[in-house]
Design a protein around this nucleic acid. Structure first.
Length: 424
RNA sequence: GGAGAGAUGGCUGAGCGGUUGAAAGCACUGGUCUUGAAAACCAGCAUGGGUUUAUAGCCCAUCCAGGGUUCGAAUCCCUGUCUCUCCGCCA
């Protein structure tokens, strides 16, 4: 959520900054609701103040044993007006809050202009795509060749956009999870965390998936509003919801492996082949809770942590800064890591690292006590995938393939794979 | 699933329907004392919002959440959520 005070004091500027994203802020509506709110709130509080004063006088009169009858009528008369005012105020505040909750974050000034992913800015590349002296296969063909990746059976069990892995590929999949958790927890200073995969609506509002993106979620049939998590970001970041974090504990750094569930509504016909876009996939996520002044350094650090995974796996990748039109709803700035996929002859997203500044923190009331002011202030939240397991698996299969369809095991994974050298 | 008990400030924990935003303790901050520290003593110390140039004042709200009773609710009533104890079931 944006700072309501900023919107009130500098509405035009906010509207211009939101326009960079392609978002049109209805300034007239905001101003109308805001002026109504102001009038109603001032009036209501004035009436409350009168009521309090008179009720207090009754109490004092009674304490002295005096007759308080004369006050009674005066206070009763206030009652109806007060109630009517309060009801209107609540209504306007609700409308204002709905509007506020639907506004995306303001972008950091370093975010490049642009409309969509075509305009994203590549900032660096690492690794040379391997030259193959045979015709490369994509991961679907490789999975078929080894018989260890089965989409048809998954369709029978559940439906489209699921996969069944077995044998060496299932093992490789698990090895990737272990490797990433170990790297981030042992070398990058993150606390390994295990969280619920089902969350309530408050948590989803906190990180920004609700109220706008309910269609992207799997909602459970249950007496309460519960959802499968679309990313570990939701449960992990909400650890600090309604919490005042001790400044000595900052930054808090969490690494967490979870499955992720996404309905992929609106991506019909997109990436229908293979494991790139599934309703269920595993991900290792990094989340940092930091002081505001540290959040951009944290974003660089966390992005480097994600890159380190690709470097150790010897997978070529590039880093792009998302342009204004492509940055997600809650983010102020996002770097995407894109891994080289020989089967597609393209770089494909494998990690997304974002600084949300105080946008999520304001929704979550996640704060820290600033020792300089002694006041609770909003934290900044930063997170990123480190990495998406399914897509990393795809990248390993395609980059490490042999002519006979077997797969070499990356050096860093051998210790997680009983020293196996290849999968076939 | 059944039966009880409970939810109060950063934490622990008092609180006959009427100056209670809330005792006390801990923690924290400042001060006195001390060569320094500790101890002791003194003082301060909730959050959100409105108004405002203002982190000054003034005002409003907040004792799990939402309703209700009342001139007035932390305190009474209803509903929900969560926690704890016992029983049942269970990986």
């Amino acid at each position: 959520m944006l700072d309501p005070k900023l919107l009130r004091n500098d509405l035009q500027n906010c509207a211009e900054r939101l326009a960079r994203r392609g978002y049109t802020l209805d300034t007239a509506l905001f101003e109308k609701l805001e002026s109504q709110r102001k009038q109603l709130q001032v009036d209501t509080q004035q009436l409350q103040s009168e009521r309090n004063a008179k009720s207090k006088a009754i109490g004092q009169a009674k304490a002295k044993g005096e007759d308080a009858a004369e006050f009674f009528a005066a206070v009763s008369a206030l009652g109806d007006r007060l109630k009517a005012n309060e009801e209107k105020l609540v209504q306007v505040q609700r409308e204002l809050n709905d509007l506020l909750m639907s506004l995306p974050n303001l972008l950091h000034e370093s975010v490049p202009d642009g409309r969509d992913e075509e305009d994203n800015l590549e900032i660096r590349r690492w690794g040379e795509p391997r030259k193959f002296d045979f015709e490369v296969r994509d991961h679907v063909d490789l999975g078929e060749a080894t018989g260890l990746l089965d989409f048809e059976t998954a369709v029978k069990i559940t439906g489209s956009r699921f996969a069944v892995m077995s044998g060496g590929i299932a093992r490789l999949h698990r090895a990737l999870i272990q490797f990433m958790l170990d790297l981030h927890s042992q070398e990058h200073g993150y606390t390994e965390t295990c969280v619920p995969y089902i969350v309530n609506a408050d948590s989803l509002r906190g990180t920004g998936q609700l109220p706008k993106f309910e269609d992207d979620l799997f909602k459970l049939r249950h007496e309460h509003d519960l959802y499968l998590i679309p990313t570990a970001e939701v449960p992990v970041t909400n650890i600090v919801r309604d919490v005042i974090v001790d400044h000595n504990d900052m930054p808090r750094k969490f690494v967490c492996h979870t499955p992720c569930f996404r309905s992929e509504a609106g991506s019909y016909g997109k990436d229908t082949r293979g494991m790139i876009r599934q309703h269920q996939f595993e991900k290792v996520e990094m989340v940092q809770i930091v002081r505001p002044q540290d959040s951009y350094a944290a974003l660089e650090e966390l992005t480097a942590h994600a890159e380190e995974v690709l470097k150790r796996l010897q997978l070529p990748y590039r880093v792009v800064t998302l342009c204004a039109g492509d940055v997600g709803f809650s983010s102020a700035k996002t770097y995407d890591l894109e891994v080289w996929l020989p089967g597609q002859q393209a770089y494909r997203e494998i990690s997304s690292c974002s600084n949300f500044e105080d946008f999520q923190a304001r929704r979550m009331k996640a704060r820290w006590r600033n020792p300089d002011t002694a006041k609770p202030e909003l934290v900044h939240t930063v997170n990123g995938s480190g990495l998406a397991i399914g897509r990393t698996l795809v990248a390993v299969l395609e980059n490490y393939q042999n002519e006979d369809g077997s797969i070499m095991v990356p050096e860093v994974l051998k210790s997680y794979m009983d020293s196996r050298r290849s999968i076939q």
